[in-house]
Design a protein around this nucleic acid. Structure first.
Lengths: 354, 354
DNA sequence: GCCTGGCACTCCAGCATACAGAGTGCTAAA
DNA sequence: TTTAGCACTCTGTATGCTGGAGTGCCAGGC
C-alpha cells in the first residue's frame, strides 16, 4: 500500500487514467457528490464499461489520488488528486471578455486605496461565490513628503506625516517637555528641508545615526528635531498588516463546510486574522497564482478549504496579496485566471501615476 | 383565546403566578431547555405540587406569557413573557466590583478612539459571551483646528484637516485649475486665521454664504479659499456611520441560533450593516439601557435574538450606542448593568479632557 | 493481455416500528 | 383550593428492514 508512492506514479499514470481522474475531479467540483464508476463511464467520453473504470479507479486509489468516503459511495479526489489535476490536467478557461470589462470598471482608479481593496474583495467573492480576501497594500517605498507637528496638552504633540504623494499618517507622540508652537514649527522646518522626498527607511537610519552626534554639539533645534522625528517615525516601518474579507457567508452554501463546528473555526480564523495573515504572507514572495489545497496550507483550520492567491504589484513592487478561500472543490479553471487578472487590475488601479 | 389580552392581564397576575413566571424564565435563561411543572416545583421555592403548577402554567399560557414548543415539552417564555420579566420581575444584579475595576483598566484613555471602541466591543463580548457591538462615535462638536493643502498632480490637491485637538481627516479634492504651492499656502492661511477653532458646521455655513459675495468683489485668494474650503468640508458632516462587532462566533454556541440558515442570515446582517445600523440609530435617542426582545426590534433577521443597548456620551453629548446581541435568553440581570457601566466608562474614556 | 458482464457483498439513506421518558390536561378526592 | 392519579401526547433513540448505489473480484471473450 505504501510502497506505491504518489510521486513516482505521476509519471506512471497512463493517458486513460489521467483522463478519468480529470473527469472525476471535474464531476466532483461540479456537484460535490462522490463519483461512481457508472457516471464516470457516461461522462468521461471514453468508451469503457463501468467495470473497467472500476479497475482504473482502484489503481488511482492505490496511488493516493482518490479515496472513498465509505465502501459504496463513489470516489472523491484527495489532496494529491487535486494537486495533479491543477498542475497537469487543468486547462484554464479563457476569461470572458465581458467579465474583464466589468472588472475594469469595478476597479478604476480611486483616491482611496482602501475602497479599492474593498471593491476587489467584493468582486472576487461575487464572481466566484467564494470568500474574497485581499491584504491591504503595504506602502512599498514610503517616502516622506512633509511632516508637521501640532502641540497638544500634557507634553504631547500630534505628528502629521504625508507620505507617497497623498497618504496621511498621524500619531500622538509624548514629549519630554513642553514645546511651543513656534518651536515645533522650527523642528518641522528642519526635518522638511532635510528629509523631504527621502525614503522613510533612510530617514530613520539617518536620524538614528545623528542622534549620537546631536547629543554632543548640535544646536537645540536640531537635537529636538532628531528626537521628535525619531519618535514620529518609530513603528512607522513595521507594517500594520491587515486584510479584508467579503462573502464569508457564501461558504455556508457548501455542504462540506456547512456544519456549525467548522464554520465556527473558519469564522474565528477570519476574525483573529493571525493565521490567515501568516498564510498570505507566504504568498507575497511567490510569483503569480498560488494554490493551497486542503492541508497544504499547513493551517489545520483550513484543512477542508482551498486558497487561491496572487500577489499584486504597483510599479513592479509587490505590495499585497489577494485571492479567494473556499472548499477544496473550487472551479479552479475559472478561478485561477480570475484571481490573476484581478491582481493585475488592482495593481494598476493602485498606481498613482495613471 | 384572543379574548384574554396580555396587556390587561399584567395587573391580573397574582403574586404566585409572577413568582412562577420569574422562576420559569430564569430557569430557561439558565439552560435553554423548556421548563416542566416538576422542575419548577423543585426550583421555584413555593411549596406547591407539580399539578398545581400546571394549572398556573396553563393560565400563563392563555395570557400569552409562555408557550410550549410541543405537547409534552415544558414551557418557554414568549416575547411578552420576557418583556414582563425584564420590566417588572427582574432585579438587576449589583456589579462585581472587581469586574468594574477590570473594565476601567480595559477602557482607559487612549489617543485613538477606534481602539477604544474595539476594546469596548471585546469587553462586552468577552464578559457576556454574546456578540458585542459598538457604533463608532459621531464627532459631536467638530471644531476645525487647522487646515493645510498640498498640491498633487492633475489639478488635484490633498486637504489635511485637524479637528478636535487630535483627529486628522484628509481628502483629495479636484481643483478647477492648477494651483502653486504658495497659492495653496495662502489659501490655507486665510482659512486658518478666519476659521480656526470654529465649529465645522458654522464654518461650512459661513463658506456657503460667502460664496455668493466672493463671486462679486473679493480678491482672488479669498475666492479660492472659499471654494477650496467648501470642497474640503463637503461631506464632512454627513456622518459615515459605522459600528464594530466582536464575538459573533460566540452566537454559534446557542442552540436556538445554531443552524446554518439562521447563522447565515445573522452574519449577513452583520456584514451588510444596514439593518443593524438602523436599529442602533433608534437607540441613540433613548435614555439609558434599552432592550429589544425577539421580534420587538422590528427586524425579521433578529426575530430570535435580543439586543441590549445603551447610548454613550462625551460631555453630555450622546455620540454613540453600544450593546450586545444574543439569543432571547440573555442573562438580563447581569447584562443590563454591564452594558450600562460600559457605556459610561467608554464615554469617560473618550472625553479628551481627562 | 486487456476488457467486460455478472455476481456477491457492503454501506447508506430512508422508513416503519417499538419504547422509554418527560410533560400535560383532566378528574376526583381531600 | 390543592393534590394525587391516570390517560394521553409528543420526542428522541434504538431497532430492523429494504432499496439503491457502488465496489471488488472472477471468469469468459476478444
Amino acid at each position: 500500500m505504501n510502497m506505491v508512492k504518489a510521486e513516482q506514479s505521476g509519471a506512471a499514470l497512463n493517458d486513460r487514467a489521467q483522463r478519468l481522474l480529470k473527469a472525476l475531479v471535474e464531476s466532483y467540483i461540479g456537484d460535490g457528490q462522490p463519483v461512481g464508476s457508472r457516471t464516470l463511464a457516461r461522462t468521461a467520453g471514453l468508451e469503457l464499461s463501468p467495470a473497467t473504470i472500476r479497475n482504473v479507479m482502484a489503481d488511482l486509489e492505490d496511488m493516493g489520488f482518490i479515496e472513498s468516503p465509505h465502501t459504496s459511495a463513489g470516489r472523491i479526489p484527495t489532496v494529491q488528486g487535486y494537486r495533479l489535476f491543477v498542475d497537469t490536467l487543468l486547462k484554464v478557461q479563457p476569461l470572458n471578455p465581458g467579465l474583464v470589462d466589468a472588472l475594469k470598471i469595478g476597479l478604476t482608479r480611486d483616491d482611496n486605496p482602501l475602497s479599492l481593496v474593498e471593491a476587489a474583495t467584493q468582486i472576487l467573492s461575487g464572481v466566484t461565490s467564494l470568500a474574497g480576501i485581499v491584504t491591504v497594500p503595504k506602502r512599498s517605498s514610503v517616502s516622506l513628503r512633509r511632516i508637521e507637528f501640532l502641540p497638544l496638552a500634557d507634553k504631547r504633540a500630534l505628528a502629521i506625516m504625508v507620505m507617497n504623494e497623498q497618504e496621511v499618517q498621524n500619531r500622538v507622540i509624548q514629549l519630554d517637555r513642553e514645546y511651543s508652537a513656534s518651536e515645533l514649527q522650527e523642528v518641522a522646518n528642519y526635518l522638511n528641508t532635510q528629509f523631504a522626498g527621502k525614503n522613510i527607511r533612510d530617514v530613520r537610519a539617518a536620524l538614528l545615526s545623528e542622534l549620537d552626534e546631536a547629543r554632543k554639539g548640535m544646536n537645540r533645534i536640531m537635537l529636538s528635531a532628531v528626537e521628535l522625528g525619531e519618535k514620529a517615525f518609530m513603528a512607522e516601518e513595521s507594517g500594520d498588516d491587515d486584510f479584508m474579507v467579503s462573502g464569508q457567508t457564501r461558504l455556508m452554501d457548501y455542504d462540506e463546510l456547512a456544519d456549525v463546528a467548522s464554520l465556527r473555526q473558519l469564522f474565528e480564523a477570519f476574525n483573529q486574522k493571525r493565521e490567515i495573515l501568516h498564510l498570505l504572507d507566504k504568498c507575497i514572495s511567490a510569483e503569480g497564482v498560488q494554490i493551497f489545497i486542503g492541508s497544504e496550507s499547513g493551517h489545520q483550520i483550513l484543512d477542508h478549504c482551498s486558497v487561491v492567491t496572487a500577489p499584486y504589484s504597483v510599479d513592479d513592487d509587490v505590495v499585497g496579496v489577494l485571492g479567494v478561500i473556499g472548499p477544496t472543490r473550487i472551479a479552479y479553471d475559472r478561478v485561477i485566471p480570475l484571481v490573476d487578472i484581478t491582481a493585475r487590475l488592482l495593481g494598476a488601479a493602485l498606481n498613482p501615476r495613471n
